[in-house]
């Protein structure tokens, strides 16, 4: 565990806490994409199947459980909570995510490190995570008034990805046999997806304006 990895994980954790707090405090999930949350649920379920087969550390297990539990909580609130579900932007959140899921799964069947159920599902989760934020970014683009917390949520998620790249560079330089090309390429793609958002986020912050993304 190096400082970049820890900082990245913490950003990921903070992003989820920000989202939970926002929805819970305002009783509203306005501007939050249910599709992105459901994609993350698929990502976490497929990736953390190893909770049942291998133990890495208490830290690792705890974080996995937090990510799973929090994502399912958000989905439950958005779908079933009496007050919150009414605030969901159903008509705006129309990204057809089956067009992300199917190609990612087919790619995982072809491009993987080992052709086993666990490893294919793990690889699928890596590919799917790279594009899981897209429905959220599209929804933000359609929302005129992005509230601070939703903006911060996406910014923290993007920071987590950027820090993971530094983590990989650090590990590559310090660990003799550390290589994971599929993860690196997907991670770089995932970070590139955020660049446009980062630009407008930082600009609105410097100019002290409300964040809005051009259509």
């Amino acid at each position: 565990m190096n400082i970049f990895r820890l900082a990245g994980d913490m950003m990921h954790l903070f992003s989820i806490i920000v989202l939970l707090l926002k929805i819970n405090a305002t009783r509203s999930c306005r501007g939050v994409s249910l599709k992105t949350q459901e994609l993350y649920a698929i990502v976490f379920v497929c990736r953390y199947l190893d909770l049942f087969t291998s133990f890495i550390s208490l830290y690792n297990t705890t974080m996995k459980l937090i990510f799973l539990l929090s994502t399912f909580t958000i989905i439950y609130w958005m779908r079933f909570h009496k007050v919150i579900r009414v605030t969901y932007d159903r008509e705006q959140d129309t990204f057809r995510y089956q067009f992300l899921i199917l190609p990612c799964f087919l790619l995982a069947l072809v491009l993987n490190n080992e052709f086993s159920a666990m490893e294919v599902l793990w690889t699928f989760s890596i590919y799917l995570e790279a594009v899981a934020i897209l429905p959220q970014l599209v929804l933000l683009q359609r929302t005129n008034n992005i509230d601070n917390l939703t903006g911060n949520y996406v910014f923290l998620l993007g920071s987590y990805r950027a820090l993971y790249i530094l983590n990989w560079i650090y590990r590559f330089m310090t660990e003799p046999n550390y290589r994971q090309y599929l993860v690196w390429i997907s991670g770089i793609v995932q970070t590139i997806v955020y660049i446009d958002f980062f630009y407008y986020y930082i600009r609105s912050w410097r100019n002290n304006e409300k964040l809005s993304l051009p259509a």
């Binding site: 990895r5 994980d9 990921h12 990736r47 190893d50 087969t53 291998s54 890495i56 690792n60 974080m63 996995k64 990510f67 490190n113 080992e114 086993s116 666990m118 490893e119 793990w122 993971y164 983590n167 993860v183």
Partner: peptide, 10 residues
């Protein structure tokens, strides 16, 4: 073999 690679990142 059979166990598959261990993934230590989240």
């Amino acid at each position: 073999p059979g166990e598959g690679p261990v993934h230590d990142e989240l």
